[in-house]
Write a protein that binds this DNA or RNA. Structure first.
Lengths: 216, 216
DNA sequence: TTTTAATCGAGAAAAATATATCGAGAAATT
DNA sequence: AATTTCTCGATATATTTTTCTCGATTAAAA
């Protein structure tokens, strides 16, 4: 068979690759040409075998004794994650969190380019943040279709999230980056990636509670 | 042995519990008194056995045919996560993301209470957000010790994150909620919970890239 | 040139996590 | 009262993810 089998990539792998990239970028700036899996693993407190197996997914092969070529590995990871070219995105919910995301220029390094924002508050429409225009939410379906936008970012309150998700999907959006602490009910062909801050805090507060209790 | 054995709780469990809580809170508002694991599982697209096992960690036992008592389960989860009383927290980095977090009142429902913020920019010192005062970063060590703060939130750029973490630890902070996309080098008794937005985006952009390629 | 040290990658093993099976109990229905 | 339906929780199984072992390879040091 000639077609390359696209093996399924576990999510934990996808979550570690950007962390490798962060280290690699720093090493490149320092002028370091080669890096071993051991070094990456030590910096991130991981197992070196795990790092090697993760890298294997990107198709890069290393060399004994010296490891991997830094620039080559950077390119491979970026390409693997589709970070070598940005995908346009819409953001809905220009509240404090939405504004913060709009104001952060770094996401262009992570494969997305926010080209417009939307809000239900008419007073916010017409404004811009970092040259990104803010429209009234009513404009979303039409603009989304016309501009062929594939990624939607939800930063509205939980109560409004599902309604926004439906609008996005009607507008042709295929992947949703959801910050609302609620389950989105969407067709299963829609990709949903949640950022659940409460779920992150639960880990922190539980562990802290336990560690304080253990001291007693 | 009389001392109750504190079983280790897997992180995936801790991350699901707040999601159950979200549903339970909604059900309670709707006046629903009982809920089955099946119902929770269906809403979150999980397995009902998994939901039951997760709930088991909180110590609550259900009843055949009817399931679990909503208010009792809410209380048990909140107590389990230490969300029945808030822990004071400091935030460092009053940029756009830091400001967004300061501006969001909801974290008090998730076990933390931000009582002060810090920034290296002297112009920001003296201001307040939602009545939370902003100080210059130099004040952190002293205030942290005096107020016995245990949680630190890092919302500074990656390059400054480790320096801030060290200051926090010197100030007696035991748990760090880190939003900087960088590995914190801290003693292992310090609890670190990362919110890595790039790691979340990598999952989204990779899946989207694959789904587009699969269509061809 | 020989030896040593560091690394990769294949495969095996272990650990963690998720899912399936099923008997028993409780409520509703017949 | 008997039957049906729904659910729990104990146990077993399956799957996923991580870690360990080890021979082969490369570069540097002796």
């Amino acid at each position: 068979m000639t077609t390359k089998e696209i093996k399924h990539v576990p999510e934990p792998v996808l979550r570690r690759l950007p962390r490798y990239l962060q280290i690699l970028t720093r090493l490149k700036e320092e002028g370091i040409k080669e890096v071993s899996s051991t070094r990456i693993a030590d910096e991130l407190r991981l197992d070196s075998t795990q790092v090697r197996k993760d890298i294997e997914f990107t198709g890069i092969i290393g060399k004994p004794k010296t490891g991997f070529l830094v620039p080559q590995l950077i390119h491979a990871i970026e390409s693997f994650l589709n970070w070598d070219n940005v995908t346009d995105a819409f953001l809905v919910g220009a509240g404090s969190l939405g504004t913060a995301i709009l104001g952060y220029p770094g996401f262009n390094n992570y494969g997305i380019n926010i080209i417009a924002a939307f809000d239900s508050n008419p007073e916010k429409a017409g404004g811009t943040i970092r040259n990104i225009p803010i429209f009234h939410i009513d404009k979303l379906p039409d603009l989304s279709h016309r501009m062929h936008v594939h990624i939607g970012i939800i930063t509205v309150p939980a109560a409004a999230a599902n309604e926004v998700a439906t609008m996005m999907i009607d507008g042709g959006i295929k992947a949703i980056w959801n910050f609302a602490p609620v389950q989105l009910r969407v067709p299963k062909e829609i990709i949903v990636e949640n950022v659940l801050l409460h779920a992150s805090l639960s880990v922190l507060t539980r562990k802290l509670g336990q560690s304080i209790q253990d001291q007693k």
